[in-house]
Amino acid sequence: MRTTFVVVNYNGEKYIEKCIESILSQTCKKFRILVVDNASTDGSIQIIRNIADRSSKVEVIRNDENVGFAKAVNQALELIESGLIALVNNDVFLDSRWLEEMVKSARSDLRAGIFASRIYFLNGLINSTGHAIYRGLAVMERGFFERDLGQYDESCYVAGACAAAALYRRKLFEDIGFFDEDYFMYNEDVDLSLRAILRGWKIRYVPTAIAYHVHSASTGFLSDFSVYYNSRNWVWSVLKNAPRRILIKELPFFLLRNLTSVIYFCLNGKFTVIKSKIDAIKELGEVFKKREIVRRGKRFERFEEYIDGFGWKVLKNVWLSKAERCDNNIDKVRV
């Protein structure tokens, strides 16, 4: 099974070379790499071109402006004919067996259209083992900032995949459509995963497919930029995809989570969260049009099976102090 890697780059000078080299070092060699550069202003585009000159597996698309992650991926999807598509962030480094393990899982589970990685931060703590949905329809990374004590060693179905390092079937995109370009970036993987579930696809977590993630290298972890787009786009993902009866049941908790996040971020000087909620509300007319399209194509009814408690532990880890999450040294990673 042939795979096309898609790497979206924006000012990734610090990490892009190691990212691409980790892909080129895969034990499974049936792939090519398509790098979409969003008008980077640093030296990363030259680094990419130098690698492309050395390797026939690497191709480059250069945009004239930063069109965002979702649109950049969609540009690549329009050109891809391979049966499998791997998305890898420009600040992610893959274990050499990542693709081999993903392809093995794709061959053995034809019901799954998305495959999630075991992703670590560079300090060894867990970044993601797939998505989980909690009360209030909060979609979070399983295991976020936990120590790996073997609690996520088993392959299973999950509620979504972190697109920093994930594998997709081309047939899935043909069935449910591409990423929602209105998101620009952040939470577009949540939206896609929810749409996939509602269409009857499964999402499999593959614990042996290991990746390492710097996390928000281009935008900054919990920066004003990331807070705005994450906060706005989560609201859209819920209102666009959650089945009516689930949305009504979870609405009080959904509103409470929005309120507490606004209070938390404002207390920490991130007032862009207020604008994010206002802008989310302004576009509800368009969101509800998309919701109707999702509703008409729905094949899966038991959405409540994916809701798993309140996720207070995950929420606490999301709001760790800066000092507790600063140990992210690239030199510790060996791929």
Rank of each mutant, 00 (worst) to 15 (best):
G285M: 04
I307D: 00
T219P: 13
F178A: 07
W236L: 03
V318G: 09
N230L: 04
N9E: 06
R291C: 15
K30V: 15
S56G: 15
L239P: 00
D42Y: 15
L251V: 12
K270S: 02
E154L: 10
R169V: 00
S56I: 15
K270R: 01
A52D: 04
K289H: 15
P252H: 04
S44P: 02
V214P: 15
E65L: 05
R170W: 03
V214F: 11
A242D: 00
I307G: 00
S261E: 00
D175R: 11
G43P: 04
D91K: 02
K290L: 08
R302D: 15
R199D: 06
R62G: 09
I293H: 07
E21Y: 08
I114P: 12
R49P: 00
A280P: 00
I278Y: 13
I114D: 08
R199H: 08
P243Q: 08
F303K: 06
R135Q: 01
M140C: 09
E65W: 05
I197F: 15
N241W: 13
F221D: 05
I197G: 09
Q151T: 07
N328V: 01
I85C: 10
A196I: 04
F221V: 01
D91A: 03
F173H: 06
Y183P: 10
V235P: 01
E100H: 13
F254M: 03
A76H: 03
N328L: 05
V36P: 02
K282L: 15
F69M: 11
A76E: 07
N329H: 07
S155Y: 07
H131P: 11
D189V: 03
S55D: 14
H215A: 04
D53E: 06
A209H: 03
S96A: 05
S261H: 05
S117D: 05
T3W: 15
T27C: 10
W98P: 14
Y228R: 01
G269M: 03
K202W: 08
S261I: 12
F303E: 12
V88W: 05
S44V: 10
L284M: 10
A52N: 04
I33C: 12
V206T: 01
F93I: 14
I197R: 08
V36W: 03
G285T: 06
I33V: 10
D109E: 13
C156N: 10
E13G: 06
V103W: 14
A86G: 14
T272F: 08
L198T: 14
D182H: 14
L94C: 02
L192Q: 07
M102F: 02
L255A: 15
I263L: 02
K249Q: 00
R334G: 11
E78T: 14
F184L: 12
V294M: 13
G143C: 14
G309A: 00
H131K: 13
N63G: 12
L259E: 05
D148S: 07
F179W: 09
N317D: 03
E81R: 09
I293P: 09
R2S: 11
F69S: 13
R97S: 10
T208S: 12
G297V: 09
N230K: 02
L24I: 05
A86Q: 07
V238K: 00
A217Q: 03
L239Y: 11
L167H: 02
H131F: 12
E292H: 13
D189W: 04
C156Q: 14
G43E: 10
R62Q: 14
A70V: 08
D148R: 06
H213Q: 00
V92S: 08
